[in-house]
Design a protein around this nucleic acid. Structure first.
Length: 466
RNA sequence: GUCCCCAUCGUCUAGCCUGGUCCAGGACACCGGCCUUUCACGCCGGCGACAGGGGUUCAAAUCCCCUUGGGGACGCCA
């Protein structure tokens, strides 16, 4: 086939949703894997619903995911002259005709057909009337009355649809604008797109596009229809199932690499492999392994894979990604070195960057109080004594894990108590809670000065209780 | 209603094209245990599926047919 040329053609009528993101990803991956070209095309022929804000939202979504394009963005509204030319040619060659039937008349046709148990279709009334352009007239494509139109789908195999199922669909609206099927066929042809991975919901449009291309005497691209993404109830994914916009997942603290990993594995597989870096995906993506059945979007699994990425990714990169979430949470981290150390302690216990930012709060913003349940156990009067001893010992300790460990051991021996008697008050004093990172790692991140200060605060707090 | 597509654990899936190595493998979730200074991580183990029925075959999750179920499409939306 030569160079693979794929495209992603969203219509700017809303944000980038996860289903769209996945088809964009598949096309992008295939182009990147094969060293081909990936085109972005904005399908804005619906002047009523297309908005500038949506275009921007789609760019934002793609940018966040790290999906870049080689050509475009092309806007269909800027290509009306081209569509017009093709439509005129189709008219001229007898592959299309003018129609003056009103929407109301067509409604009646459809009602009638439906009542007879047939497929609701336009009945071809104007097909042989040899009408010319007139106000309110549309142009319809002349679909063969018999036979069938087939194509070999990359994921589903050969698909064949009887032409009798199709009606003479509109290719030019009464306002002169082209409709979807016409514009797509023309664009894919002129942009030399040869591989089209798109949602399942387009299967029924494919014969129409094939027919247009054939009428133009052109060859058709290779199609691959990817099954839909469903919600937990197996219905098509929609807002009522929760977040459907990719940027909502960004806001939830999902790493872009985790998002594309999850999205790729939803409907595509590579043996038993679950974890993929971006490079892995590009190297291993193969449309042959796109599944044929629809899949349910499972946030739990997304969170799990996000956790894996948080742990696998180099600390410096996770730290960089965390920055905006810290800012949003109002957390002012210390220097970068300290922050990275903190991130290292937090990674195993954070499923999202939002979690991680929240878990980092005690390191940098100080503590606002002590967990009540924990305080009842750990802050008994004698704890003040233990903490004082710890403070003295820590004042002489170098804040490295080995030295810290040795100091704790020495204090425990000197006091002749269980380790918990020392660790519990310390943990609470320093973190404010009973759940924190490993003691030595935590103290190392916190540093000597801050640790001693917090111990003082805790001692004062315990004594104030009487 | 008509047409198109799909059908392996609760979920994502491997296996299916090129039948036997599958009394079906992995992951998420769930349950139990281990580790342990907390919470986690990690590790080990458990639960759990070939929609149903017919064929073809020495042999079927794998091939064929039917049924059932699910999804999609049927717009001067894309």
């Amino acid at each position: 086939m030569g160079e693979i040329i794929t495209r992603f053609p969203p219509s700017p009528t809303g944000y980038l949703h996860v289903g769209g993101a996945r088809t964009a990803l598949f096309n992008w991956l295939y182009a990147r894997k094969t060293g081909g070209t990936f085109i972005l095309r904005i399908e804005d022929t619906d002047l009523e619903r297309s908005t500038e804000a949506s275009v921007q939202a789609i760019f934002d979504g793609l940018e966040w995911l790290g999906i870049d394009w080689d050509q475009g963005p092309f806007y269909q509204t800027q290509r009306f002259d081209l569509y017009k030319e093709v439509i005129d040619k189709l008219l001229e060659d007898g592959h299309a005709y003018w129609c003056t039937c009103t929407p109301d008349e067509i409604d009646v046709m459809r009602e009638t057909a439906r009542a007879n148990g047939a497929k609701p279709k336009y009945n071809g009334k104007c097909r042989h009337r040899n009408l010319g352009p007139g106000n309110g007239a549309v142009v319809r494509f002349k679909v063969p009355l018999s036979g069938s139109t087939a194509f070999d789908d990359m994921v589903k195999g050969r698909i064949s649809i009887p032409n009798a199922e199709l009606d003479d669909f509109i290719i030019q609206r009464s306002d002169g604008s082209p409709t979807y099927n016409l514009a797509v066929a023309v664009d894919d042809l002129t942009m030399k797109v040869n591989t089209i991975l798109r949602g399942d919901d387009h299967v029924n449009n494919t014969p129409k596009q094939v027919l247009i291309l054939q009428a133009m005497g052109e060859t058709v691209p290779t199609y691959g229809h990817v099954p839909m993404v469903l919600g937990a109830d197996k219905a098509r994914l929609s807002k009522r199932h929760g977040a459907t916009s990719v940027t909502e997942y960004r806001d939830m603290g999902i790493l872009p690499d985790a998002m594309i990993n999850y999205l790729a594995r939803l409907g595509w597989s590579c043996g038993d492999q679950e974890f993929f870096t971006r490079e892995d995906l590009i190297e291993k993506f193969d449309p042959d392994h796109i599944g044929r059945s629809p899949g349910v979007f499972d946030v739990e699994k997304l969170l799990a894979i996000n956790h894996d990425h948080i742990q696998q990714k180099p600390t410096a990169e996770v730290t960089e990604a965390l920055l905006p979430y810290l800012e949003k949470a109002g957390i002012v981290a210390g220097d970068r070195v300290q922050l990275e150390k903190a991130v290292k302690t937090l990674a195993p216990r954070s499923r999202t960057l939002v979690d991680m930012a929240e878990n980092a709060r005690f390191y940098f913003n100080g503590i606002t109080g002590y967990d009540a349940k924990m305080a009842k156990k750990a802050f008994k009067p004698e704890a003040a004594e233990v903490l004082s001893v710890m403070k003295a010992a820590l004042g002489e300790t170098e804040f490295t894990q080995e030295a810290l460990s040795a100091t704790f051991k020495a204090v425990v021996e000197k006091l002749e108590v269980g380790f918990g008697k020392v660790a519990m008050p310390m943990r609470l004093a320093v973190s404010g809670t009973g759940a924190s990172p490993d003691m030595y790692e935590m103290l190392e991140v916190l540093g000597q000065e801050e640790t001693l200060k917090r111990i003082d605060d805790a001692v004062a707090h315990i004594r104030s209780l009487g």
